[in-house]
Design a protein around this nucleic acid. Structure first.
Length: 617
DNA sequence: TTTAGGG
DNA sequence: CCCTAAA
């Protein structure tokens, strides 16, 4: 069983680092993968119940619906959980060193069982509930942890401690909890199993899983396992900042004598501007062009998250992808295996499947040369750029330190779904400097220019030409985007991202872009970063003064610090603004631009168009 | 490199 | 946002 929780960070134009949930949606009941415009990303978490990992295809909704009335007598127990609720994040580990089995107790329900020797039972609630519930407290060994009370009117607690929800107790209590929370339009959902749980079965030493959760509009609670993110890959900011400092002033500027009705300082007497960088153009890649490229990868030009999911994890989830495993077991029972160090797990790998290869070969080539070509491609990627990935029930197992027991591989039923795959090795690089404070928000342009790549190209051989593409499976990234000129809500969103540095930074520390990739054909589209109102304001003001057609000056004037806004972007934005201003408000999409601004856009556009025509004459 | 304009 | 001809 998998608890699933939909994340909605509410970011605008930000990508949240996630490991996508397995694309296989169980019997069509699973949450639909939305087009992820930086939010509403789906995650999954595997919860061990009764020592078994649940069926991935099982819907928590259905399960809950079906089983909630049962006599509950089991726990979902996940040690070392991190619970992130929305913008808040708190590592349970902060409590664990001294309170190893602290739990959040719902005292009004009266279930407070702390089993010190066992793993931590886990349940989650929506943050709303927690924010409103004064009855929540954190207990450790029956004693409350020192967590101050808090009062907030909005019910959305920002007190981080309240974001930790650990429920240890009888499921009878959880049942009541559920009902109680139902009345609050929220849920506490714990995987429910009718059979009794073996309390001693959960390995204590297993690595902590991180659970990111946040209630969505429907108060639908899912969990997210982000432990795999730690091996996620994100590109190094490889968009080189091609700054060219120009000492000489722009010739265009010096003879610009236009007068703008919108302001007097339109004349660029700001020579200092031209000591700044001139070009911010960030087109490090050429668009990948492949004859067999999936059309979907370019169909949504707004955002490619879903494409990434499809191209990476979707493949992972493909039964045909991983190596088939014939698991012969010497099981005399799981329990005996656990007790015995010598209990070996026998696996027989039938075959590996090599990651996707792209080969270009002339049609006049012979079969023999085709074989050689394929062989060359295969051997080249097998050379040193692949490593083995482990798939268990469609999900990657990334924690190399886990034992087979801990991952469940030693179990028969799991082993049936154990898979191996070859995947490109991620070249690690040092993470970008990061401060949890606002410095992250304002200055680190390297983050802003981080790029994500889906796969890896190896060098081409010739002739015939070989292009090898392999997929970085399941690794997604965060690319925090920060409009330097923007304020208010944008920054709030930024901070929200900062609030979960353990996620974003880990993701950012990874490099999905294969360093050895020398193929310049592989290019990732920049992430979409909608203009905020304040950015629009700045743009309009600059254009009013400088006019259309001097986008570099506009950039320097109003967006000099917004590294991710190129003058082309500004030109494009102005174009869309003009279009937006001309259409009816009902037809407009995205964050509404104040009509006042749109009016100014029209006025400015009309004026400068006129000026251009006059100048032409 | 920048501008301009189509996609 | 991307792409690119043209300046």
């Amino acid at each position: 069983m998998v608890l699933q929780k939909r994340l909605d960070y509410g970011f605008s134009g930000y990508q949240v680092p996630v490991v996508p949930r397995a694309s296989r949606s169980a019997r069509g009941r699973g949450p639909v993968q939305k087009k992820a415009c930086g939010k509403n990303l789906h995650h999954i978490v595997g919860i061990n119940i009764n020592g078994k990992q649940g069926d991935e295809e099982e819907s928590i909704n259905d399960h809950h619906r079906e089983k909630r009335s049962c006599n509950l007598n089991s726990f979902a127990r996940v040690p070392g959980l991190q619970v992130n609720h929305g913008h808040q994040s708190c590592m349970l580990k902060e409590f664990l060193p001294t309170h190893e089995n602290c739990c959040l107790n719902i005292s009004s329900v009266g279930s407070k069982t702390c089993d010190k020797s066992e793993g931590i039972c886990f349940a989650e609630t929506s943050s709303r509930v927690v924010g409103n519930s004064s009855c929540l407290g954190v207990l450790s060994e029956g004693r409350g942890l020192d967590i101050p009370e808090k009062k907030e009117e909005d019910g959305l607690s920002t007190r981080r401690n309240e974001r930790i929800h650990h429920v240890i107790g009888s499921l009878g209590g959880l049942m009541e909890t559920d009902q109680r929370f139902d009345s609050l339009k929220t849920y506490v959902k714990v995987p429910l199993l009718e059979d009794c749980m073996n309390l001693g079965s959960f390995p204590r030493g297993s690595a902590g899983k991180k659970v990111v959760s946040k209630d969505d509009d429907e108060n639908f609670v899912r969990c997210t396992q982000l432990s795999t993110i730690t091996e996620g890959c994100v590109t190094q900011p490889f968009m080189r900042d091609q700054r060219i400092k120009k000492v000489s002033a722009s010739k265009r500027t010096s003879d610009f004598k236009g007068t703008s009705p919108f302001g007097n300082d339109g004349n660029c007497n700001r020579r200092d501007n031209f000591f700044h960088e001139r070009s911010e153009r960030m087109y490090p890649f050429k668009k990948r062009k492949f004859f067999n490229q999936s059309p979907s990868s370019t169909s949504d030009r707004g955002f490619q998250y879903e494409d990434i999911l499809k191209s990476s994890d979707g493949r992972v989830d493909d039964d045909n992808y991983g190596a088939a495993i014939a698991a012969s077991s010497s099981t005399a029972g799981r329990q005996s295996c656990r007790r015995s160090q010598d209990c070996n797990v026998k696996l027989s790998i039938k075959s590996f499947r090599v990651p996707e290869l792209f080969i270009e070969i002339p049609e006049t080539a012979t079969i023999g040369s085709l074989k050689r070509t394929v062989m060359q491609a295969v051997t080249s990627i097998l050379g040193d750029e692949l490593h083995v990935g482990i798939l268990l029930q469609g999900k990657k197992v990334r924690d190399d330190s886990k034992t087979l027991i801990q991952t469940g591989i030693s179990q028969d039923e799991k082993r049936q779904r154990l898979g191996f795959m070859l995947e490109p090795r991620c070249t690690q690089s040092s993470p970008p400097q990061y401060n949890e404070d606002s410095s992250f928000l304002s200055t680190d342009s390297s983050l802003q220019s981080s790029r994500l790549q889906l796969g890896v190209y190896n060098a081409s051989r010739e002739p015939p030409q070989i292009k090898v593409e392999s997929c970085v499976g399941g690794n997604l990234s965060v690319v925090p985007s920060l409009a330097d000129t923007s304020t208010d809500n944008t920054n709030a969103k930024c901070r929200a991202l900062v609030a979960v540095p353990s996620i974003s930074m880990k993701a950012l520390a990874m490099v999905p872009f294969h360093r050895k990739s020398r193929n310049p054909d592989f290019v990732q589209r920049r992430i979409r970063r909608p203009f905020s109102v304040s950015e629009v304001e700045a743009l309009v003001q600059a254009v009013e003064k400088l006019g259309t057609g001097r986008w570099r000056d506009v950039k320097l004037r109003a967006f000099d610090n917004a590294k991710h806004r190129t003058y082309v972007d500004l030109k494009d934005k102005w174009k869309t603004l003009v279009h937006t201003a001309r259409i009816s408000p009902q037809q407009r999409r995205g964050e509404p631009v104040p009509q006042e601004l749109l009016d100014r856009v029209l006025a400015g556009h009309a004026y400068w168009s006129q000026q251009q025509s006059i100048k032409a004459v």
